[in-house]
Simulated assay, not measured.
Amino acid sequence: MTTATIAPAPAARPLADTLTMLRRSLLRAVRYPGLTVFLVAGPLVVLLLFVYVFGGAFGAGVAPGVTPGAEGRAAYLDYIAPTLLVMTVVGGATSVAVSAAMDATGGIMARFRTMPIASGSVLAGHVLGFAVQALAAVALVLAAAVAMGYRPGAGPLEWLGLLGLCVLLACALNWVCVAMGLNAGSVETASNTPMILLLLPFLGSGFVPVETMPTAVRWFAEYQPFTPIIETARGLLDGAPLDGTTTALALGWCVLLGALGYAWARALYRRERH
C-alpha cells in the first residue's frame, strides 16, 4: 500500500507578493480612473480659485509690502503652491481608504487571507500603489503652478528632500487611510471618514500665516501635524535654509502617523470580519 503525500503549500514571498499587489493597485487605477482624476482635479481647482479669485487680496497679507492685484496674486501663488502639493498627497491618501473599503466589503481581502501570500503585502499594495499615483499627481500640480508663474528656488538637494518628504508623507497617510477604510462599514463611510485630513491644512499655515489667527486657533494651527510639514515643503521649494525644529517635527509627525496607521491596519486586517 502506498501512502499519498500531500504537497506542502507554497511559501509566501513578501517582496514578490508586495510587487504583485502593487501591480494590482496600479491596474485598478487604470480601470477606475475616477479616483486618479480626483487626485489632480481637486488641488487644481483650489489652486486656480485661491490664486485668481482670492490671491490678489491674500497676497498682500502673506507678503508685506505687496500691493493687491497682479503682484498680490504672484506672491500668493508662491505661498500656496507648496500647500497644494501637500494637499495632493493628502487627497491620494483619502482615495486609498475607498479602495481598501471596496476590497474589505467585497470579500476580496477575506479570500486573500486564505491564500499563501504574505499578509502584509495586501495592505502594502494599497499603500505603495497610491503613493505612486500621488507622486504623479504632485508632478502635474507642480507643473500647473509653474505654468501659472510659480518659480521655485530649490536646488538639486532641495528637490531630493522634497521628494523624500512627499514619499514619507504619502506612505504615512496611506497607512492611516487604509486602516480607516478597513474600519468603515461601507464604501460611502470610507469616503467620508478621511475628510478631516483634507480640512487640517486649512487650519494651519497652508493658506494664511498662523500669526494672523486668534490665539486659540493659532495654538491649534501651530501644533497640528500639517503646519510643520507644509513649512518644510515651503522651505525646500524656496531653497531657503530649513528650521531644524520645524523639519524634525515634520518628519516626526510622518513617522508617528505611519507607525500608528500601520499598527491599526494590520490589527484590522487580522481581525475576522463578520
Rank of each mutant, 00 (worst) to 15 (best):
A57M: 06
G59W: 01
G72V: 06
P68C: 01
L77R: 05
T94H: 11
G107S: 01
G55V: 01
V89N: 03
T94K: 15
E71Q: 15
V98S: 12
P68A: 01
M109G: 07
L47V: 02
G65N: 07
Y76E: 06
T67H: 10
G61D: 05
A81C: 05
R73D: 00
T83G: 08
A101K: 13
V96K: 13
A110V: 11
P82Q: 03
S95R: 11
G59N: 04
V96E: 15
L48Y: 08
M87N: 10
Y76I: 05
L84D: 13
A93L: 13
A81M: 08
A100K: 06
L85Y: 05
T67N: 07
V86T: 07
A57F: 06
R73N: 04
P82L: 03
A81L: 07
S95Q: 15
V45L: 11
I80W: 00
V90D: 01
I108G: 04
A97L: 07
R73G: 04
L49P: 00
V51A: 00
D103Y: 05
G72T: 05
M87D: 05
V90H: 08
A60V: 11
V86K: 11
F58V: 14
M109T: 10
T105E: 07
I80N: 05
Y79N: 11
S99H: 12
A74M: 06
A60R: 11
V89F: 11
P68Y: 00
Y79P: 09
V86G: 05
V53M: 09
R73M: 10
F58D: 03
E71L: 12
A63F: 11
P82A: 02
Y76D: 07
P68V: 00
T88I: 03
T88H: 08
A81Y: 00
A81K: 03
G55T: 02
G69F: 01
A74Y: 02
F112V: 04
A75H: 06
L48V: 13
D103N: 10
A63R: 11
Y76N: 04
G65T: 03
A100S: 12
M87Y: 06
G92H: 09
A100W: 02
Y52W: 11
R111D: 09
A93R: 12
G107C: 02
Y52C: 07
L47I: 01
I108P: 01
R111M: 09
A104C: 06
V62M: 08
P64H: 00
L48T: 12
A81W: 00
D103G: 14
F54L: 14
G65F: 04
A97M: 06
V46P: 01
I80T: 03
A100C: 07
V62A: 05
G69Y: 02
I80H: 05
V62W: 06
T94E: 04
G59H: 01
V66C: 08
G92W: 12
F50S: 01
V98F: 03
D78A: 12
V66F: 06
A93Q: 09
A101V: 13
V45C: 02
T105M: 10
A93H: 09
I108V: 14
Y52H: 13
F112R: 13
